[in-house]
Amino acid sequence: MTLPGCATTGPDYIPASPLLDVPLSVRVRDSDAAKRVAQFEIKRDWAALGALAAPYVARDPGDGDWRLVLGYARLQQNNYAEAVAALAPLVELRPEEVDAQNLLAEALRLSGQSDRARLVLERAAFMHPNSHVTRFLLGEVYRENNLLERARTAYSEAVRLDSSFSLGWFGLAKVLARTGPREEYDLVLQRLRALDPELAGAVAEPAAPARR
């Protein structure tokens, strides 16, 4: 799973996923290990990132920061079962940790456990009402379950909380392509093109209304 919206350049670059409030390398207290985390993110070497994190988690299962690094690496490798195994205990250890809740929910959703993902996200939305990422992920769950009005509301809330969040505009455009109105779809797509032209190109055109 390679996420769109991840910057990958800059001399003092700290890799930042659009699904994380706090970059992975910032979480790691050891400066040398933090540099390696950042390097693996830049290279998108998720296997190496997981291999780096796994011994830390084995030595100290209560180390939530390394658990999150490991869960993120496994999620990026599409290894959803291991991502869930890494992240679920962290959500129990740190119920206030929004990144852990969001990543756990995404791993559950992508592994076909949509109902569990929705429960995690609805709890996270209650605990963290200002998390645009949580609202976006709720939109994804609702859209996949054809709850389009709920999805539209969730995506709209995501971009209200962060108007530069291109994934939120992308989700909203996908819903509006199915539900309309066309005028709102056009405005949302225009905003998305300004933020991320490549992502905007992945939005399907709305179906033409049936002729009478």
Rank of each mutant, 00 (worst) to 15 (best):
N79D: 15
E41T: 02
S25M: 08
R29F: 10
V91C: 07
A48M: 12
A54Y: 11
A85I: 10
N79H: 14
P15E: 00
A85Q: 14
L75A: 09
D32A: 15
A54R: 14
V69G: 01
P61S: 07
W66M: 01
G64T: 10
L87A: 09
R74T: 01
P18S: 12
K43H: 10
D65S: 11
L19F: 15
S25Q: 04
N78L: 13
R36L: 15
F40I: 13
R27H: 03
L24M: 11
L24I: 07
A88T: 03
D45C: 04
S17M: 08
G64D: 08
E97S: 13
R29N: 12
L103Q: 13
D45P: 00
R67E: 05
A53K: 06
Y13I: 06
R44L: 13
L20E: 08
N79C: 06
L104S: 01
D30Y: 05
P55K: 05
A83Q: 09
G62C: 01
V91Y: 03
A73G: 02
N79I: 10
L19I: 11
G71R: 01
G64K: 03
A58Q: 12
L90H: 02
A73Q: 01
W46Q: 03
L104Q: 01
A100M: 05
V37I: 14
A58D: 11
L104R: 02
D45F: 09
A38I: 04
L68I: 01
A16I: 06
